[in-house]
Nucleic acid binder design. Structure first.
Lengths: 216, 216
DNA sequence: TATATATTGTGAAAAATATCACATATGCAA
DNA sequence: TTGCATATGTGATATTTTTCACAATATATA
């Protein structure tokens, strides 16, 4: 157990993997799971799993493993999934609407309360009961609805300007899907979801599949 | 310059970032860019940028920087974006349709040729001219259309079975959006796109924002 | 031509991350 | 109760990744 600030990005990201694996194990009716099991599911090593967990406490029983339900809840609480977050989504295009109606987020406590767009045809309508508001109202609406986190699914060239409005409204966490890197103040947490990266990674792998040698 | 097999995941992923940043710089009319510029755009260090690039050659000019267009093309060629890949997408739900009509992939050489679903209402129709086929035809269609890469956007419980069919059809690269970890043979490249991870990461950050101390 | 300034490319050093290996603790069977 | 099998938790070690620091090389200017 150590200072929480010193826990690495990678460990936190793996906690998400463990959480998902445990949810599945729970559904499948398992009561305990070993570091070995978890490792195999997520293509990691057992030592890695144990080390990651040990940063936050000791949740297992020697000789037995980890209690599935309990560990899942513990990790959920570490990640802050045991509470609810107010989320707004900006940019109701194809991807935006898809995310707005994605039920998994809801289940994990991410409640999408507001949608924003600049298209008059969309403004005033709703998706799964979530109203689509005028993007001009971002400032007041984000504050009024105590939004904790904003998901941005809008075109690259508009993203930076909107991000600045979001920051001005006091939001401290942004998940960005727009294909640009945003500049935000230090106290705002920003993560970029770049779907091209994984695709390009696969392209790289395919290209170099039969090439164990040097690269020009 | 070193053996290409030894280049780290992180470096490859950063190449994607550089590629995107360079595309933007090119659009903005820049002819050269320094490692410092690139670093600032992507929140990295200049040394990191130079080191990453140095694994593949030396593309810059001392005292000047890197030629934007040339470096972009060079990185594109390293990532395999200078050629075209045949892509199929399985699972035409909300996310699937959003990705099917996402033009950026097309631009980078990822040509979505086929869509698959098991819903009779969808089979036979098309999205942006891409036909939606019966998921039962995966085996023959993937081979016939020489599909290089498959994007899976289907429910978790069906994913593993479908992945196995995809592998049997000889596809060597899978981008998985289903919320499970798939088991595939060693010679198949698999990447998981897990949108919950980034959201959960932000949740963790928000939760521990004012907590520099120990964690229970 | 000489001098000042900018910026790369890269070994070496530092820092971060992952793995090892084993003492420790548990369950079960005889 | 003893012995065996299993599996955690964690310091120590190994590996990987990042950063440093500087020689090398370019441009600009006088």
């Amino acid at each position: 157990m150590q200072n929480i600030r010193k826990i690495s990005d990678s460990t936190i990201r793996r906690l998400s993997l463990y959480y998902r694996a445990l949810s599945n194990s729970e559904k499948d009716g398992y009561f305990t799971v070993s570091s070995q099991d978890l490792a195999k599911k997520e293509r990691l090593t057992p030592a890695q799993v144990r080390k990651d967990l040990s940063f936050f406490g000791s949740f297992g029983t020697r000789g037995l493993g980890y209690p599935v339900k309990e560990l899942k809840e513990k990790i959920g609480s570490i990640l802050g999934l045991n509470r609810s977050w107010n989320v707004a989504l900006i940019g109701v295009g194809n991807l935006g609407s898809a995310l707005a109606s994605y039920k998994e987020f809801q289940k994990q406590g991410f409640h999408i309360k507001l949608l924003f767009d600049n298209d008059p045809k969309k403004i005033g309508s709703s998706i799964d009961g979530i109203p689509i508001l005028d993007i001009k109202q971002i400032g007041t609406q984000l504050k009024q609805n105590k939004i904790d986190l904003v998901i941005m699914t809008l075109p690259g060239h508009t993203a930076q300007g909107v991000a600045e409005e979001v920051v001005r409204a006091g939001v401290k966490a942004i998940l960005n899907f727009a294909p640009v890197s945003l500049k935000v103040p230090e106290d705002v947490f920003l993560r970029n979801e770049n779907m091209a990266i994984e695709l390009e990674y696969l392209s790289f792998c395919l290209k170099n599949r039969n090439n164990p040698g040097k690269h020009a």
